[in-house]
């Protein structure tokens, strides 16, 4: 009896070892895509492989830092990664990205002007926008009757224990900065000191910190208010219109996730073929159908249906005040410490 597990282990080890060897020898008719989980529809990957014969190995991550950790370790070479704006900026600074040959990505013309030449990639040399979105307030209007327009309306004593927020120190600090009229990138020891008492008041009111699926606590009825990704809010709104999305009047974070090619990518040609493929309106439309963020592809938006375009979480009406994050370097450590400290006290 005891011999069986050992035998199985040996067979498994041998199998692992052999796959490890064969992988390297293959010709590059495949690309390694390293992207956010819940962000690339399988149909899009299958469509690309069916058309080009290029196989796609899709590996996922749950935070920019998780992606960086694997990228920096160099254990696996990726052809395409999907960083957010501030991570692109850091990667460009460290010369970790390849130039995109725009002649191979003609469909880039479909991207709207307001998503091009943004501060993180000012000359648009390295990245192809995937989806944009914002971080805003979701209100369960069945439970909360008064109007909620900004962060200060959310963090009130009467909503204690009824709030879910992203488990992300940088996001949380940016909201407090907005209430004192500072931008999300204005992170200095002075501004952090300024928002500390505000956060000390806010954090004890929070019931759940969740970045992966903040909609769950709202759907389950465990909380009535949330500050969450717009895509999560759009899914909540599609489920039940009692979940209203509000962009905070003080200002909010607009994120933009893009495809980029690491400097050591084995198959950059394949990567650019994939970029061009997903920029086709009919393909980009499929991504919007599954993940209702703000599609930067204006040609694809024309193919969307009325309810999709009317979803205020996907396409916020009016002219909201939105800012992208920039790379703040070592200040991230100070932010992490501040929020950890306040959470521990709360």
């Amino acid at each position: 009896m005891k011999r069986v597990p050992l035998f199985v282990a040996i067979v498994l080890a041998a199998a692992l070892a052999s796959t490890g060897c064969t992988k390297k020898a293959e010709a590059p008719n495949e690309i390694n895509l390293f992207a956010w989980s819940e962000y690339v529809p399988q149909g899009v990957i299958d469509g690309f492989t069916a058309e080009t014969g290029i196989r796609v190995n899709y590996e996922t991550y749950a935070s920019n830092e998780e992606m960086l950790a694997k990228l920096v370790s160099g254990a696996q070479k990726y052809d395409l990664i999907q960083p957010s704006e501030y991570t692109i900026e850091a990667l460009i600074k460290e010369q970790r990205l390849q130039l995109v040959d725009w002649a191979k990505v003609p469909n880039f013309k479909n991207i709207g002007q307001e998503f091009k030449n943004l501060p993180h990639d000012p000359r648009q040399l390295y990245s192809v926008p995937w989806m944009a979105g914002s971080v805003g307030i979701v209100v369960n209007t069945d439970k909360i009757k008064e109007p909620i327009t900004g962060y200060n309306d959310v963090f009130q004593e009467k909503h204690s224990g009824r709030i879910v927020v992203l488990d992300d120190p940088r996001e949380i600090v940016s909201w407090a900065l907005a209430t004192v009229g500072k931008g999300p990138n204005d992170v200095t020891p002075q501004t952090l000191e300024q928002v500390k008492p505000i956060l000390a008041r806010w954090l004890p009111l929070v019931k759940v910190y969740d970045s992966d699926s903040p909609k769950t606590a709202l759907l389950n009825g465990d909380v009535d208010l949330g500050i969450v990704w717009s895509g999560e809010a759009a899914l909540l709104y599609a489920e039940n219109e009692k979940f209203q999305y509000v962009l905070p009047a003080e200002g909010a974070h607009q994120f933009l996730d893009s495809l980029a090619i690491p400097i050591d990518a084995p198959n950059p040609i394949g990567a650019m073929a994939f970029m061009n493929y997903i920029l086709r309106p009919e393909v980009s439309r499929l991504i919007s159908a599954d993940f209702p963020y703000t599609n930067p592809n204006l040609e694809a938006r024309k193919l969307l249906e009325e309810p999709e375009l009317d979803n205020p979480a996907s396409y916020p009406p009016g002219n909201p005040k939105l800012t992208g994050f920039s790379d703040i370097g070592d200040s991230a450590v100070a932010i992490d410490k501040l929020v950890t400290d306040l959470k521990a006290k709360g």
Binding site: S63, E65, K207, V208, A332, V333, D336, K343
Partner: peptide
């Protein structure tokens, strides 16, 4: 994270955050 709502950090959460969170502070 799942049952406590991430409200009170455990030492495991703190360590995880240094690698997968915004601080990116591996040495710590």
């Amino acid at each position: 994270d799942i049952l406590g709502g991430g409200k009170v950090d455990m030492i495991g959460n703190i360590i995880e955050n240094q690698f997968k969170g915004s601080a990116r502070n591996w040495p710590f």
